[in-house]
């Protein structure tokens, strides 16, 4: 866990205000308000279908939220500022610039199979940051070294284990030097013995002060690495508290209690 010195002058890095999102008739998120501070690790937990992934995907506008606000360092993400209704999306170029600062790691890795590990990491450095090929490869190599995969740089994803693929995906995101990293169930598609290596890399990132929002079913990670844990149920943010308040004692909210019970039965926490 990292220590923070919250200074009065610094606003939250990400601030979500009264955000709601529906898919047709299904209300996926309702009135979510949440701040993520610099260097903070926030884990989103909850039953499947509770809206954790949707919330995460609204943060970088992969899903367009309907109402409310998502701000990164004060800048509204995805929608144009102002009170005009209906709101209009920002220009494609603006959204690309906003997304550059928000790294994302997916459950299914989503590496590009025709490119090597190094090329996967270098691609956005060339296409988005405009680096030359050599500079991009050097930066990509540095990112791969951070996830302990410099020796696999020339491998294609098909020749990497799931854990290695996910670490390449993490390197691809951190190479862009984002202000915040979003993780969407980063270990859910992995064989149990490969989960550890990915979590280790994530812990190292947290220790270095990376701001992270992590959707996870790894309660151990949430308990030991998160600064705060958000529990979602049926699209609502039920609890937002330090992990000790959620895992350390019997939670007040019956929904949190019954959710954690399923883990306790398996001796996970």
């Amino acid at each position: 866990m990292n220590t923070k010195t919250p200074s009065a002058a610094t606003e939250a890095l990400i601030s979500v205000r009264n955000m709601s999102k529906s898919f047709k008739d299904f209300e996926a998120l309702r009135d979510i308000t949440l701040d993520v501070n610099r260097s903070e690790v926030v884990c989103l937990i909850g039953p499947s279908g509770s809206g954790k992934s949707t919330l995460l995907r609204c943060l970088n506008f992969l899903e367009a939220y309907d109402t409310g606000e998502v701000r990164l360092e004060g800048e509204l993400i995805g929608w144009q500022e102002g009170t005009a209704q209906p709101r209009r999306r920002v220009a494609a170029g603006t959204l690309r610039r906003q997304r550059q600062h928000i790294g994302m790691v997916f459950q299914q890795f989503n590496l590009w199979p025709h490119l090597t590990a190094l090329e996967n990491v270098a691609e956005a450095l060339i296409q988005v940051k405009g680096l030359g090929k050599k500079a991009a490869q050097d930066a990509a190599m540095a990112a791969l070294t951070k996830v302990h995969l410099s020796d696999k740089a020339q491998n294609h994803p098909a020749n990497l284990s799931g854990g290695q693929q996910q670490r390449v995906a993490i390197a691809r995101a951190i190479a862009m030097e984002p202000r915040v990293m979003l993780f969407d169930e980063p270990t859910s598609a992995l064989d149990p013995e490969l989960v550890g290596e990915v979590l280790t890399v994530m812990k190292e990132m947290a220790a270095e002060g990376m701001t992270m929002v992590v959707v996870t079913h790894e309660m151990g990670f949430a308990a030991h690495v998160a600064d705060r844990v958000a529990f979602l149920d049926k699209g609502r943010l039920v609890t937002l508290a330090p992990p000790a308040d959620i895992f350390g004692r019997e939670p007040d909210d019956p929904r949190v209690r019954s959710f954690l019970q399923t883990y306790r039965e398996r001796n996970v926490v």
């Binding site: 906003q98 199979p113 988005v128 691809r172």
Partner: peptide, 30 residues
Amino acid sequence: IPKGQAEAAEALGIPSLALWRRILVPQAIR
């Protein structure tokens, strides 16, 4: 081509022309 591949590119801020030229078309040909 799995949808996630285009999504990963979008999340990185890769422009759509580069997405087609560098990621989708080479794989479609393959």
